[in-house]
Write a protein that binds this DNA or RNA. Sequence first.
DNA 1: TCTGGGGTCCTAGGACCC
DNA 2: TCTGGGGTCCTAGGACCC
Length: 418
Amino acid sequence: MQHIALLDCNNFFVSCERLFRPDLLGKPVVVLSSNDGCVVARSKEIKDMGIPMGVPYFQIKDMLTKAKATVFSSHFALYRDISKRVFDVVRESFPDLEQYSIDECFFTFESDDPLIVAAELKREVERQVGIPVSVGIASSKTRAKYLNTVAKKTTGLAYWEDEKWQQEFKLVNLTEIWGVGKGRTAAFKKHGIVTVDTLLSLAPAVVGQLFGVEGVRLQAELLGKPVLLVSPFRLAQKSITSTRSFAKSSTSYAVVEDAIKYHLHQCIKDLETMDLLATGLKVLISPGRYSDYAFQGASKEIILTAPSRDVFVLQKAVIEALQACFRESVPYKKAGILCTGLVSVDKQTPSLFSDTETIHNQKTNSISQTLLSINAKYGQPLLQLGRTETQGRAWQVRKELESPSYTTSWKEIKTVRS
DNA sequence: TCTGGGGTCCTAGGACCC
DNA sequence: TCTGGGGTCCTAGGACCC
């Protein structure tokens, strides 16, 4: 029988931090989002205290201190590295896995006793990497997702026979289902639909009429008929963004421009890594979401005459766009760049109008390359075109509680004595 | 004082065309 | 007084996810 499994790391960011701080096992730990803004990962002890996901740090700081919780800023270089190690182990047994997020993957397999297969994999990941994982197994992705949450509450493994689905699934609240958020919950509720069985009792045509294609898809998936397929092939990425909130808002053009340049460089670095070019760029600037200026955000899109990742071409365009949408007197709290229309370098179509630009690009490309390689060697961002660190301090993020780079920097590698 | 960042997909509505 | 209909393409914004 064909099964779809979802393997998910338990409290992933917390588990990564604990890997190098085994003294924190069994103790309350949280990891914060960028800027030390919100809680994005919680240990079981924290969840048991009733602290919800995504709550602002400042609101629960006292509570955490009282509980003697350990608090970390997020450390993505570490998490990405550990993530890769987890999937490398899964890939040994299931080479066609589909990586769904930094801490989850789907894979398919055939077996009459799926729990044995999953138990073996769980053991192996935990032995080789040390990150605890849970596996849910079912006949559709949406069902597997749900069983993963069941697994997390029990032994870390879950698989249900048909009978069990009939009995147990009926009264599950739709809010617990993958793909049902605030909007869809409200739409369902308007028609008196709250639990899984009510949705399943409707004819597909009715569901389609009321809730569109997404509704029909969801209904089939919940019935155990797979609509979303597991595929190892990642579709080409469609956009790259780099955005960040400032530690303090600012009305200074120079500060915002500096942030924009920084994000452009981050995007170019990603384009370089993925060997892609961008056809469009968008400059995004916005004030604090909770300030009086909340709706004064602005953005400006630029369509390039030819796909590019040349820092000279892009920076010029981006600064023009910023000047066009920047407003004096608005206190900006966030800035960023969105790259769209990504194309791979070998599929690049030369522009009808870009004769001169091509020549220009060849010259400037080598300068861009040189900048990138210097930065890659010495750790970025050492050298950036037209940018100095003089404005940097003004918008830099807070990251006061970051753990050492145990696995990605030789300088910070852990010393073990015996 | 202090409220994340990076993605994808869908839909409604405007612009445009014949 | 009376002012088309149908199609495509694009974009902004919303919903959702981790």
